[in-house]
Structures are given as C-alpha cells and as structure tokens.
Design a protein around this nucleic acid. Structure first.
Lengths: 108, 108
DNA sequence: TTCATATTTGGTAGAATAACCAAATATTGA
DNA sequence: TCAATATTTGGTTATTCTACCAAATATGAA
C-alpha cells in the first residue's frame, strides 16, 4: 500500500486536527473547555500568555473544528465541540502509563 | 483553573505523544502498521521518502511509545503498539465529517 | 576478514511554529 | 461620536521540524 497523492492528502487533512491538539497550551485549553465555555480573556488569565498568543491558539483549534465559537457582546466564547477529543486524551494517558510500566520493568 | 507548572508539565508530556501522531507520513505509517509489522525498507518503499527520513520518523513514534521495535537479522521491524491510536483516528474522521457537513450547511 | 545489505546518526538548509509587541477591528456605553 | 474594553491581525525573532545527503554502525554471507 503506497502513499499516493490521495492518501497523502488524506493524511495531511487528518494531521491538521492532530497538530491542533499537539501543543501543551492548546491541550490545556481543550481540557478546560471540556467543563464549560470560556471567553478569550478568561482563557488568557488561566494560560498566562499574551492574549494575542492565546487568540492564535484558539483560532488553530477552531480551524481544526475542535471548538465552537460564539460572540456575545464584546466577548468571544469558545467551547469544546468534539467531545471525542477527550477519549483521545485518555488513549494518550494509556500510552504514557504503558511507557512508565516499561521503564519500571526495565529497572527491576 | 490556572496552568501552573505541574499542569504545564503534564500537558507537555501528553503533547509529545500527540506530536508524534501529528505528521502525515507518521499517520500513514501508523495506519499501515495497524495491519501487520513491517521493516524500515518496506515502509520506505511505501512512503517514498529517503530511508533516513523514514528511520527518523519511526524513532519519533518509538520514543512516543506508539510502536514496538523488533530486530530480525539485518532488518528492523516496527509494529503498532497502541491500538487505541486507531480510535483516535476514528475520532479525527468524525471531526472532519462534521466540518464538511458544516460547510454544506453554510452553502445551501 | 571482507563485502553487501539494512538501518541509524550527524550535518545542513529551508519551512513551519510560537512567543511577544504594536496596531487594527468590533462592540458597548457615555 | 468618543472612549474603553475585547479580540484579532501583522510583523519580527528565536526555536523547532523535516528532508536530503553522507558517513557510521550492525548483521549475515562469502
């Protein structure tokens, strides 16, 4: 099974979604947004980075289809759109646990 | 819920696993390795990049704990270790389908 | 040991990312 | 309209990533 142009395009599309998740700050925000929606300034306060940086991170999540955006007055609220991203993260946890176990096994 | 040092570290660890998945070539190989294990030269043939590039991609997957490595004679075989990475990808598909649907809705 | 094959590692150049600051835009209220 | 607040966008710099080539390493066969 070769990676022809079609398969490559398909993988590139998927990679956009995964890349959106693959950043500490964005992961953190995904977790936070799993509870409820927050506006940019609230997220900025939690994250502790410049608001322009946070805004750009959020736009990456938006472009990937991971969050939903709603404007209310002067504020813009983001919420988690794809709940299955959370299962996602559980899977990552499983990977990490297994890695840790391997390390333990290697030591003893 | 602020992103303190501990939370940041936690997110960074998770991000390593996600980053490993977040590349078209590596995604492709994950899919291929879901069927059965392959050696580096077979994967290189499928992927169509330089073998050194493929080797580096594989080492990223290995470091993230996503694949298992087994040496047989002159060849090195890689296999998918975390099957749940596939559910992962199903979730990504769901995201993409929903995005496509939104586009359709926006047009009509 | 020597050769051939398979893989990894080191080096390098170009592309992509992420952080900040400053400026632009949008919205509400005076 | 003007001022204040919330957010986004543009610009810049430093870092990281990715692809290739060349060289090093490992293994099995002659």
């Amino acid at each position: 099974m070769k990676m022809d142009a079609r398969k490559r395009a398909r993988c590139e599309t998927r990679a956009v979604v995964l890349k959106a998740l693959a950043h500490p700050t964005r992961l953190f925000m995904i977790e936070v947004l799993a509870e409820k929606s927050y506006c940019v300034c609230e997220l900025t306060e939690m994250v502790g980075l410049d608001i322009s940086t946070v805004s750009k991170h959020l736009s990456i999540l938006k472009n990937a289809g991971l969050v939903h955006v709603e404007k209310k007055g002067k504020q813009v609220f983001y919420s988690l759109r794809m709940r299955c991203a959370l299962n996602f993260l559980d899977c990552v946890e499983a990977v990490l646990r297994e890695q840790a176990q391997d390390l333990m096994d290697a030591i003893k």
